[in-house]
Structure formats: structure tokens, C-alpha cells
């Protein structure tokens, strides 16, 4: 039985259609990503599935139970992290987590364990207002998980974090579904979805455009690889004449060769001893997005 079933959900705010008929299934223990640019409707979709917003149309079940209206039997089995830092003002990290533990009738020891697990033990007595962005996100994730829910929703947990903090958080997130827990995460970072998610739904304009594993999405696209060599290593004209090269152009990094047979092109470059500063980039989700929407991705 799938953990989450979404059937034709739709929601409008006045003239604006935020979510326009979305149907999805998320399997038990799956790490599922909803990927899309800002304003794609990710958060509205998530909030309807969490049971925070009433859909205009369609319905959703989590663990076989309808999410609307508010279902007191379902809530203890679900964990949520909302986009903003939803904290009690002026409490310390430990007090914050213990308060949430009590709301779910979970002992304080569980709160202290999670404090350690998200690496905030040395910040236990720091007030939430004084935590850094990354620390705040860790605490907020711990608050979502302190009662050991079967399903957890994370709404853009790495938004507004610097790259270093983002990568640190990935280590924590990637282990969340190890024990069979289902994780649903929204993000506007392509690389994040690629690293963390078993399957990704690409969303834009309130609709789901494609659902599959990141690798399969890139594969089906048959996106060309890009090979970049150091400036001056090869002339643009010469590159265009090489067998297997579809196109070549100059960029700030050097000369970029677009190809569908990167192996052969690399061999040719090696033959001519032109591999200085070579960089190979395979097709990415970004290319998938471009292909699906016909426009560049704006995070």
C-alpha cells in the first residue's frame, strides 16, 4: 500500500491557480522530492497533503487516512517541518525540542537523543533566536521527527542556507528514510533532488510535468554532454569540425563542446593532446526542466 495517495488536488487563490490537478503516489519508505522553481505550487501542494489547507478539488490520503478534515488519529503518525522557523519565542534549543516532545506525549529523553542526532548538543542552551540558519533548520527538522513519525514532510529545509550548511544538512536528511520512514521534501535545488531523492516530481505552473528517479529522468531526456576545455586549447572552428561534436562555442571558462558521444570526443581531444583543464558535464535535471518547459530554470 502506498504511504501517500494524491488524487487530482487543485487549489486557487482568487485568480491565481496555485495547484492545478495534481495526482501522485508515494511508496512506503520512499524519499520523494517535489522539485520546481519558486511559485511552482510546491508549498501549496504540500500544505494540502499535510491537511493544513482545504483543496478546492480532489483529495489526499496519508497512511490510508484522509487528511481533511483535521484527523487527530493521523497527526501523531506524521511529522512536518514548515517553511518558516516555527519556534516558541525565547526558548533554548533543548526546551524547544522538549516542548514539542510533550505535545506528542513523548518523553524528554527522545528530545535529548534528537538534539544529539542533529548535532546541536553544544547548542542545547542557546536560544532559538541565536541559532544560525543551518542550526535552526536542524532544530526544526528534529522537532518534526521527535515523535518518530512514519511519514515526514519537509518544506524546503535547505532554503536560504549557504552551500556548506546545505551539504551538511544532506548528510542528516539522507538517513531519514533508512528505517522505513517515508520522506517527502520540496526543494528548488536540482542537485539536492538528485542527491537525496529516490523519485522526483518536477512541478511548474501548478502541474506535475514528470515523475521518475533523477537518473531515469536524465536518461530519457537523452541530453547532450558538455565538454569544456581550457581557453585556447582548441579553436571553436576546429572543435566544430571534430567527429561527434554537435556544436561548439566560446564561454568565459573556455570552449564548450556539446556532444552525444562524449567518449569519442574525449578520445579525439586526448589524441591531439588538448585535454588541458577539461571538464565533462553530463545531462542534469536542469536540462530535463528546460526540455519539459521550454525555458531556463529560475530557482
Amino acid at each position: 500500500m502506498p504511504a501517500i495517495v494524491i488524487d487530482d488536488l487543485a487549489k486557487s487563490y482568487g485568480e491565481l491557480t496555485a495547484v492545478d490537478g495534481v495526482s501522485l503516489e508515494v511508496g512506503e519508505g520512499e524519499f520523494f522530492g517535489i522539485l520546481g522553481p519558486n511559485g511552482a505550487g510546491k508549498t501549496t501542494l504540500l500544505e494540502m497533503v499535510e491537511g493544513l489547507r482545504r483543496p478546492d478539488r480532489g483529495n489526499a490520503t496519508v497512511l490510508g487516512l484522509p487528511v481533511w478534515p483535521r484527523n487527530a488519529d493521523l497527526l501523531p503518525r506524521v511529522g512536518v517541518q514548515l517553511q518558516a522557523s516555527a519556534f516558541f519565542e525565547r526558548l533554548t534549543a533543548r526546551e524547544q525540542l522538549r516542548t514539542f516532545a510533550s505535545l506528542y506525549s513523548v518523553p524528554h529523553t527522545a528530545a535529548d537523543e534528537w538534539l544529539e542526532r542533529v548535532g546541536l548538543l553544544d547548542k542545547a542552551d542557546t536560544r532559538v533566536e541565536d541559532l544560525s540558519g543551518g542550526q535552526g533548520q536542524r532544530l526544526s527538522i528534529a522537532c518534526a521527527l521527535v515523535h518518530d513519525p512514519e511519514v515526514v514532510f519537509l518544506d524546503e529545509p535547505t532554503a536560504a542556507l549557504d552551500p556548506q550548511a546545505r551539504r551538511n544538512l544532506w548528510d542528516l536528511l539522507s538517513g531519514l528514510n533508512d528505517s522505513g520512514r517515508t520522506v517527502v521534501l520540496t526543494t528548488h535545488y536540482m542537485d539536492e533532488a538528485e542527491v537525496l531523492c529516490d523519485r522526483v516530481a518536477i512541478m511548474d505552473g501548478g502541474r506535475v510535468l514528470q515523475v521518475d528517479s533523477p537518473a531515469a529522468l536524465v536518461r530519457t531526456l537523452d541530453a547532450p554532454a558538455r565538454i569544456t576545455v581550457a581557453p585556447g586549447a582548441v579553436a571553436v572552428e576546429e572543435a566544430r569540425g571534430m567527429v561527434g561534436v554537435d556544436d561548439a562555442h566560446e564561454s568565459v571558462d573556455g570552449v564548450v563542446l556539446t556532444t552525444r558521444s562524449p567518449g569519442r570526443v574525449l578520445a579525439l581531444l586526448a589524441e591531439r593532446d588538448r585535454l588541458d583543464g577539461v571538464r565533462v558535464q553530463a545531462g542534469t535535471l536542469e536540462d530535463v526542466f528546460l526540455d519539459l518547459t521550454g525555458r531556463a530554470y529560475r530557482a
Binding site: R70, L75, A84, S85, A86, F88, E89, Y104, C143
Partner: peptide, 11 residues
């Protein structure tokens, strides 16, 4: 801070 929403999703 959306704490109100967060509490609405707790039991």
C-alpha cells in the same frame, strides 16, 4: 512564525 500552523498539525 507559522507556529500556529505547526501546532495545528500536532495532536
Amino acid at each position: 512564525s507559522k507556529l500556529l500552523r505547526r501546532l495545528q498539525l500536532s495532536p
